[in-house]
Design a binder for these strands. Structure first.
Lengths: 215, 215
DNA sequence: CTGCAATTACTATACGGTTCAGTTCAGTTT
DNA sequence: AAACTGAACTGAACCGTATAGTAATTGCAG
């Protein structure tokens, strides 16, 4: 009997389909490397195929055109990049005490240049193509809302009560992202270096202060 | 009396040179429009010439190549964009009371989408090309240090004393820039709108608090 | 001051050489 | 037979240069 069908029966995918999916993943990996390094317009499909170790015909066999490949790649990356910072497994390792959790989270974010070298290139790509591919930016922000702002808001609720917890969370994350952007993405380290630990400590102290502060 | 000379004596430039400089400015204006809209790689010199209302030979008469034109354009824009936000004339209009000055400054920054529509495109361009043109990013940051961080640091010194004034200034500006980036550049308004006034108010209250806050 | 050649900056067009997106096809692997 | 390879190919765009010609300005002779 020949292999019953190519659809989704009970057994796993046929070895042929496994191989095809493997090639597809190779294309995505090559595209990731090229797009992150050169941006959308300056990336050529020939180089993508070469980086993937695959013929150009194979690339077009899996993806309709350059835009489709780019969209598939970025959609796959959005969750991937953020879940390593804010995902469930990352949350488990946080201290129980909320203020300590904030400090730990700030430290992780400010070290993303080392822990997630691709994240900076991805951030640059999202911003660079935010007009040509607005869905990419929106998907990224929506995911950031769920994984980042949501969890940090919960922390601030535990500290300050419900008052302004969400705004405080946005402020907290904003100050962190800004430092990363200026120092790591725009080469601020070589222009005006900033003491990251002092920055994070002051941030936790000011934004994590109880609501009834003296005015 | 005929125009005295063609050199740089006492009279202004010769009419020929005036006309040439006018064309040069037209090229820069066309380049600004195209580069801000499409980014570096996706901008063609043919379209720059067309947008400038000028022949391509004129473009190459004034600028050696695409990179030289891009560098001349961005160098001209760095100071231009920032001085309208933090320049001397903008500083004069600030209230004398430091906390009020902070609020006013925050309000101005958060309205830059309306007051300076080109600023967002410029910011995106700086970030997008921060690897291909690192000098652009560094020049931008250096100017931001002088015009932005410097003045805001002075304000915080007046409020909290010398302690941590610079870090507070960075934190303050960071939170503002981040909101602009997410809401205006990445279309965050359509994903998760944020109350800008409440954000600014909370920011001033938290970061502008006196140093001996209760812990 | 007037008339005329030389010079300057520009325009329009087109070209060479390269690159790119996307297609096609004969052959190979599995 | 399905998926892939390698390579050639098309049509178009791009950068930068070159050419031929125009309009305005300048220097100079009469």
């Amino acid at each position: 009997m020949p292999p019953a069908d190519a659809g989704a029966d009970a057994a796993g995918p046929s070895p042929r389909e496994r191989r095809s999916q493997h090639k597809r993943q190779a294309v995505l990996d090559g595209a990731r490397c090229e797009f992150l390094q050169h941006g959308y317009a300056a990336t050529s499909m020939d180089r993508v195929a070469a980086a993937a170790g695959v013929s150009k015909a194979t690339v077009y066999g899996h993806f309709a055109d350059k835009q489709a490949l780019f969209r598939a790649l970025t959609e796959a990356m959005v969750g991937e990049r953020l879940s390593e910072l804010f995902g469930a497994s990352a949350q488990q390792a946080l201290p129980a005490e909320p203020a300590a959790a904030l400090r730990e989270l700030a430290g992780r974010c400010l070290e993303c240049r080392h822990s997630q070298p691709q994240f900076l290139d991805f951030l640059r790509l999202v911003i660079a193509e935010s007009e040509r591919f607005p869905e990419l930016a929106k998907t990224f922000l929506a995911q950031l809302e769920r994984t980042g702002v949501g969890r940090v808001t919960a922390l601030f609720e535990a500290i300050t009560g419900a008052a302004e917890a969400e705004l405080r969370a946005r402020l907290f994350m904003g100050a962190l992202v800004h430092l990363i952007l200026m120092q790591d993405l725009l080469h601020g380290r070589e222009v005006a270096p900033v003491d990251r630990e002092a920055y994070a400590e002051l941030l936790v102290r000011l934004v994590g202060a109880p609501p009834g502060a003296p005015g």
